[in-house]
Design a protein around this nucleic acid. Sequence first.
DNA 1: AGACGTACCTGACCGC
DNA 2: TGCGGTCAGGTACGTC
Length: 277
Amino acid sequence: MPELPEVETTVLDLKNIIGLSINKIKIYRNNIRYPIPKKITTLTKNTSILSIIRIGKYIVIKLNISYSIIIHLGMSGRLKMHYIKDSIIREKHDHAEIFLNNDKKIVFNDPRRFGILDFIKTSSINGYKYFSNQGPDPFDKKFNEKYLFNSISKSKTPIKNILLNQKIVSGIGNIYASEILFDSKISPLLKGMDITKEQNNRLAKSIKRILIIAIKNKGTSFKDHFLIDGTLGNYQNRFKVYNKDGKYIRIGKKRAKIVKIVQSGRSTFYCPYLQRI
DNA sequence: AGACGTACCTGACCGC
DNA sequence: TGCGGTCAGGTACGTC
């Protein structure tokens, strides 16, 4: 599930725990993608939550003890929140639980274990090893048409792969890369160096437009739930190309086919008639 | 320096 | 019903 819109939706859902206290954190499985620091359980007892922000696809929970909790949902991770008294049985792949002082807990569930749960000094966030790969957020002032053009116009890499490069712009993943390129009428195969100014400017707009619409729809839910209360996002109902290979769409008077190709081992969906090189 | 493949892991699905 | 193969929303790391 988790690209920028899904992570943003999760962060927005978490906003109402700001100001609450953490009674304790329980770790049930230490070997997710990276080991979870041991001190997360000892140092977080009776701390309070100062703020929660998103950096790319990462969630940062700042505490009042000069430490922050870092969460990345990987491919299959999600957060759930429910009343402690309602949750007698732990689900499979629940790896950690954060107990709050409002009788609720946040549960970190991640079947594939590509996610991250880390605990770092808040003062070291800027130098945090995984944040050094994070380029500007699509909604950051730094991310504009000029920045995008300068970042991609010398690259031999296909634009689809460029969009997946978090260092150039953070937060876009495999679903939204296809949807954004369809929206901007650009072929996923087009090399960065071959992009025109006009295409570049359309692309910058589409990145923001598609991600905003996705956030308004509370993100994409594939087969599993992802909202913190267990309900579904809606953006999967608005896909134009993702997972729609073989389907036809109307473009003017023409019926145009959506196809699937593979780029760097990952599926790309697009309409070759609309998105010509 | 940049481009590319690989590895990490579970589960769902498909064809035999 | 079972088994093997393929694929899935991400990304760090090794190698050329």
